[in-house]
Amino acid sequence: MKPPAFLYHDPRSIDEAVALLARLDNARLLAGGQSLMPMLNMRYVLPDHIIDLNRIEALAGVRQIGETLRIGAMTRQRDIAEHPLVRSRLPLMVEALGHVGHRQTRNRGTIGGSLCHLDPAAELVAVAANLDATIEIVGPKGARLLPMAEFALGFMTPAIAPDEMVAAVNLPLPAARHGYAFLEMARRHGDFAIVAVAVVLTLDPAGRLATCAITLGGAAAVPRRMAEAETMLRGAAPDALLFGRAAATARAVDALEDAQVPGWYRRQVAETLIERALATAHRRAVAANGMAS
């Protein structure tokens, strides 16, 4: 249970890190290390080089650019959850982060690390998918932007080349008066989600649903936007019956199966959580708009 031998590099700038990535064979980027370090200790990965990103200050920080929140890849989960902009404009993120690991792992774990590890059950991956995030990727040819839907290529496989790295994630901010909910079912607090659900919705002045985004995490290899349910809800007058019908679309999800959790169980949990998340998000949207419920 000790890491294998490797050579260690701790660049101070993004350019330097990209140059190292281009030059070195079999190199792994070390972000917060809350997934890579266990994998090293268990020798699931045997890199020749570790490129530690923890001393690159330019990779950390949260700032608002227009109606987008730009979060640097090396921003710690704890710092994101405590950031005033995140707390005021993106409470979905705060609620989701409450489910991410534990106090000790959030103190060290980063958003970029979580996105690149791309665990199907990762809360931050589901949030990024739900908000239609754009991932900022840097490589030897410069920077490029990739929508989250294209970034999440497949099971634990982000669409980044071996000589590229994630520099930041851009999260479009929902309208100021939105409703949100992040719900998760796990066997114990901090465990990987069996299913997680993220919902963001807005209401028009008549109280009908103007926009609605629903994402399932943990259910499939990559986060699954519930497009059919979203279409069903858009423009409709919200009520419990409608939320139930929208949630029932989860019955068609081709859900992951594993030794502990059969696919049919994930589908049932997904349906229940979507229904609850829609109700919670709607209640919050009504309150945010000062409407009578």
Binding site: P3, Y8, D10, G33, Q34, M37, P38, N41, D52, N54, R78, R103, Q104, T105, N107, R108
Partner: peptide, 13 residues
């Protein structure tokens, strides 16, 4: 000042 798992950090860090 922040609680972290010391098995998931390298000494050089």
């Amino acid at each position: 000042g922040r609680a972290m798992r010391s098995c998931l950090m390298l000494a050089v860090q």
